[in-house]
Design a protein around this nucleic acid. Structure first.
Lengths: 209, 209
DNA sequence: ATGAAATTGTTTATTTTTTATCAATATTAA
DNA sequence: TTAATATTGATAAAAAATAAACAATTTCAT
C-alpha cells in the first residue's frame, strides 16, 4: 500500500537506475525478475530493492518475483514518465545547444519546444520544431504555450536572475546546468542540478586517493 | 589530524559545494568565516560543516573561525585541484563538442587536450590547442601524451566498449556522460557519471509529487 | 589585563538508512 | 495433489549519518 511518509532523496535517486535496467531487460525479452537477480545486476542488496519498491506499492508476487513490464510501468508512473513534458531552454551557448540536439529522452516524453537567448542569432542548426527566440519574448511565450520545465543554460552570473524571472512568470520547475545554487531563489522552487564542475572535482578527489 | 577511516560518499559530494562558496567569499573579499555562518549560507547545520572538515584535518581556530583563503586552499588540495589535469574526450557529438568548448574548469587546472571520434570530420570550431583525432589514433596518443581523465561522450551502446578499451590502455579515470553503468567494466575503474536522463527523471518525479 | 563572548573539534545522542530475518504465500516439479 | 522451493513485503536489527552538547581555547571589548 502507499504509505503516507516522506521518501528520502536517496531512494528517489535510485529510481531512474531501476527504470533504466528494467527497460533494458524488457528490450532483451526478459519477462520476469526477482529482487535478488535485479540486485545482483545493480550491485546492491535484494533487501534494498524490495524496500525501495515497497515505498510505492506492492508490485511483486511471492514465489514468482516481478513482472518486468509491470514493474517498469509502475516506476515510469512514479517518475511521472506517463505524462508528456514540454521543455524550454534558456541560454543558447554550448550547453543549451547540446541539450537541444540531445534526443535521448524524447522516448520518455520530454520535448524541447523553444530556446531563448539575449542574442538568438548565435545559434544555427537546431532540430526541426524548436523555436529560437529573444529573451524579451519569454513572458509572452510562457503565457501562450505549455511549459513544464525550464532548463537554465546561461552563465553562472546570470543564472539567479533567470531563475527569479522564471519563478515570477510561474515556471518553478528548473533543470539547472549553471554551477550555482538556486534552491533559495523562491520558496516553492523545484530544482535539479547538473553540475559538471562538482562532478569533475569529485572525480579528481577519487583519483587523488 | 587525518583519520585513517573511510570517508562516506555523502561527505565527498559536499566538498565541491564548500569549495564553490569559499571561492565566492574570497572573491568578495571576505577573509574569515565561522562554521555557523557558512552553514547558514549553505542551508546545512554548523555541526555538519565542522564534522565534514574534521575528516581531513584541523583547519579552524577556536574563537575565530576559519580563514577563507586557507580553508579554500585546504579543500582545493583535498579535491586534488592543486595538480593539473589533462583530459581527452571520446566522442565528438553534441555533448563532446559542448564539453570541449566549456571552459569553466580551466581555472581549476582541467584542460581538454584532444578529442577522438570514428569520424573526426564531423567537428569544426573547437578551441585552439585541442587536437581532433580518429579513434584508431587513441592508443598511440595515450602512449605519447599525459592523460589524466577520459570523458566518455559516445552513444550508450558504444560506451562500455570504449570504457573497456580505455582501461586496457591504462586510462581508468573516466568521466562518463553516457546513461550507462560502467562501474563493473574493470576492477579498479574510477567513474563519475553525468547522467542527464536520470537527473531529468528525478525532476519529473518531484514535479509529480 | 581581564572577563564575557565566540568558536572550534570531539564526544555523545538521535535520527535515518541499510541490511537481515522471517512469516505468509505462490510456484513448480514429482 | 502435495511437498519442496522460491520469493515477497514487513518487521526487526545493525550500521551509518546527522545533529546536539560541551570542554578547551581564542578573540575582543573594556
Amino acid at each position: 500500500m502507499i504509505k503516507n511518509k516522506v521518501i528520502s532523496e536517496a531512494v528517489i535517486k535510485r529510481l531512474p537506475r531501476y527504470y533504466r535496467f528494467l527497460k533494458q531487460l524488457e528490450k532483451e525479452g526478459v519477462t520476469r525478475i526477482s529482487s535478488s537477480s535485479l540486485a545482483e545486476m545493480l550491485n546492491v542488496t535484494a533487501s534494498q530493492v524490495r524496500q525501495d519498491f515497497s515505498n510505492y506499492g506492492e508490485f511483486g508476487q511471492q514465489g514468482y518475483g516481478y513482472s518486468v513490464a509491470k514493474l517498469r510501468g509502475e516506476i515510469a508512473s512514479i517518475l511521472g514518465l506517463d505524462a508528456r513534458h514540454d521543455i524550454i531552454i534558456i541560454g543558447c551557448g554550448n550547453i543549451g545547444k547540446a541539450l537541444a540536439r540531445y534526443t535521448n529522452f524524447t522516448d520518455d516524453g520530454f520535448y524541447v519546444k523553444a530556446m531563448f537567448d539575449l542574442d538568438p542569432s548565435v545559434i544555427q542548426k537546431v532540430p526541426e520544431g524548436i523555436e529560437i527566440l529573444e529573451m524579451d519574448k519569454l513572458a509572452t511565450y510562457i503565457n501562450t504555450h505549455n511549459v513544464d520545465i525550464a532548463a537554465i543554460c546561461v552563465q553562472s552570473n546570470a543564472a539567479i536572475d533567470v531563475a527569479k524571472l522564471l519563478c515570477k512568470l510561474g515556471i518553478n520547475r528548473l533543470w539547472n546546468f549553471a554551477p550555482v545554487d538556486l534552491s533559495q531563489v523562491d520558496s516553492n522552487i523545484i530544482v535539479e542540478n547538473i553540475n559538471m564542475s562538482d562532478s569533475l572535482f569529485v572525480l579528481s578527489y577519487k583519483i587523488k586517493q
